[in-house]
Amino acid sequence: MRRGWFLPIAATLGFAFLYAPIVSLVVFSFNESDLVTVWSGFSTKWYGKVLADPQILGAAWLSAQIAFCAASIALVLGTLCAVALVRFRKFRGRTLLAGTVSAPLVMPDVITGLSLLLLFVAMEAIIGWPSGRGLLTIIIAHSTFCMAYVVVVVQSRLRDLDMSLEEAAMDLGATPVRVFFDITLPIIAPALVSGWLLAFTLSLDDLVIASFVSGPGSSTLPMVIFSKVKLGVSPDVNALATIIIGFVALGVAIATIVQLRAHPKRAKA
């Protein structure tokens, strides 16, 4: 087939559009000047400032705790849900479950956030739990929307999975629970790793939902960044952003290597 010039040029421009702003953000995080966009010399002083800011460090620690718990809950529930949807072909409410689990993927954040907050307030008024809002309510909210992403990742791996292995184990007398833990789980492990990592980063990134369901004193990292950014572009936010982007790039690299090792022939991501 003849290869035209249009596609390569369009793709190059598209990638430039995707990356230019991020590259410029990273470059200017090493700028010495207070003026974010005027280059005046190399410096790492903004990194020092970020790492000495107790508000940022506190928020980062809170966000990391939330992301760890939310990703773990989402992983367990999401995996169960994916197994139910892929392995149990027919049960009552299957369509409802499939629709409900994928809806949070596209639901506008403001609706998810508002609805969960109103639920927590109503529950507190009726049964006295959860008392107040903070760490726990953010973890619950994040688990719910992260679960949808875990389901997508695990589901696609389960679909590709050769069922004859599981059937063989069953024929040899293994119980379903044993088959799951001894056969299925090791095979889908790479998908579980990437599902957990995806959930972790999504939780770490969420601003809108956390703003609704957090309480006084529980400001997550995105909430702190948002309040700084609203005041304008500042070089220490650039440094903080570079640190976060670095972490994410590392995580994605690890996830990719895990997946490539798992099935080198069909590495899709």
Partner: peptide, 19 residues
Amino acid sequence: LVILPFWTSFLLRVYALSG
């Protein structure tokens, strides 16, 4: 290269664009 920005913080990408 397409997936990497998808993993990168939404808020930070909007911020990068504003700069």
